[in-house]
Amino acid sequence: MTEPGGASHDPVGAVLRALDLTADAQQPDVFEGQSLPQPQGRVFGGQVLAQALLAAGRTVPDGRLPHSLHGYFLRPGDDAAPIGFAVERLRDGRSFSARRTHALQGDVPILSMISSFQERQPGIEYAEAMPVVPGPDEVASALDVLGDVDHPMAKFWAQESAFDLRHIPGPIYLRPDADSPLGRQSVWARARGPVPDDQLLHRALLAYACDQIMLEPVLRRAGRPWATPGLSMASLDHAMWWHRDVRVDDWLLFTQSTPSAQGGRGLGAARVFDSDGALVASIAQEGMVRVPD
């Protein structure tokens, strides 16, 4: 991704700078953030989601980390304009804190999100097992697939994205997948550079990264590639649960499916495992998916 006013040689650093929000000196619990330029000129949904979570996290008591969020994308954002984040403190209990965050441009919300934070506590412990799939070193990266394609979106996916993505079975950037009629896929993902040792930041970056791929199973099941002429896609709502600590600069495996598509909308679901096989997060996202007749 191209840095605001700079080059794209450090995509992870550019994302970290965009996520470094500025507090409003006059208004408590109000913050401002910048956007990374996108090929379509619209704010990337994962970015504003991560920024909203970080804004909420800066208002909770120390030691409480996000365990869930539920957000609605209300309007497309302009990537050339700053975004304001207004946090409402809904509740601070003995173990949990709840926050509502509005992301605003031109005094109208582009995202409305509720998030919940919890202190670390003991409890019942179990989780699904990670499926057996080829390791990331055995799978082609987006750069391997798209590195020679001269197109702005190919350049974004292969070179400017802050995350290295490796699809199982292969990606559907340029051609459909004829071998996955149910739309299931697994994706290895890892930040292209180191990330500071801040668990709130790593959880926010997981929200950032997943928005790139959450609706891909819908396209895969429909037999459509990203390169479908006239394709129109946009995130509508996003739900996310963090189960355990996560590091986005280590390999993560997304196992994805799509239970339904109808009325110009499709639902994507994902389980996220770390490289040791621990289930670290569960995600669901519904989006607008429109293709020409």
Rank of each mutant, 00 (worst) to 15 (best):
A178S: 12
A55M: 07
L19W: 06
S232H: 14
H202E: 09
T255H: 09
H70D: 04
R265N: 05
Y72L: 06
G57R: 00
L231A: 13
Q185D: 10
P131L: 11
V149Q: 12
G6F: 11
V30I: 06
D137K: 10
L252V: 10
S141K: 04
L36A: 09
Q199P: 13
P39V: 14
W188P: 01
Q105V: 09
G46C: 04
Q185S: 14
A278M: 06
H70P: 04
S257W: 14
A207P: 09
F273K: 01
R89I: 11
A14G: 15
A278D: 14
D78A: 05
P122D: 08
S260H: 15
D24S: 13
I213F: 13
D144M: 07
V289R: 00
M233K: 06
L111N: 01
T258K: 09
I283Q: 05
L54N: 04
Y208H: 12
D164S: 08
F117N: 00
V246L: 10
E216Y: 07
Q262W: 10
P28T: 10
M153L: 15
W226C: 10
L253D: 02
D164G: 06
L182F: 09
M153A: 11
A191G: 05
A56I: 07
V43W: 00
P181Q: 05
A98G: 13
R94C: 03
E138V: 04
Y208R: 01
A222W: 02
R221S: 11
F73R: 00
G287M: 03
I283R: 07
L36T: 03
A23Y: 09
L146Y: 03
T22Y: 02
G147I: 09
G223P: 02
P229K: 12
L267H: 06
M233A: 13
F163L: 03
A81E: 01
G84M: 06
G77R: 01
I213Q: 01
R244G: 07
G123R: 11
S112C: 10
R58E: 12
G93E: 10
R99S: 04
I124D: 11
D211Q: 05
G57F: 01
V30K: 13
L219V: 02
S257D: 15
R190I: 12
Q159D: 10
R290V: 11
D198R: 12
A7C: 07
A140N: 07
L146G: 05
K155M: 10
Y126A: 14
E286C: 10
S257A: 15
A103I: 14
E119K: 12
D150R: 12
A23I: 08
L231P: 08
G77K: 01
D237C: 09
P194Y: 03
L90W: 05
P131R: 10
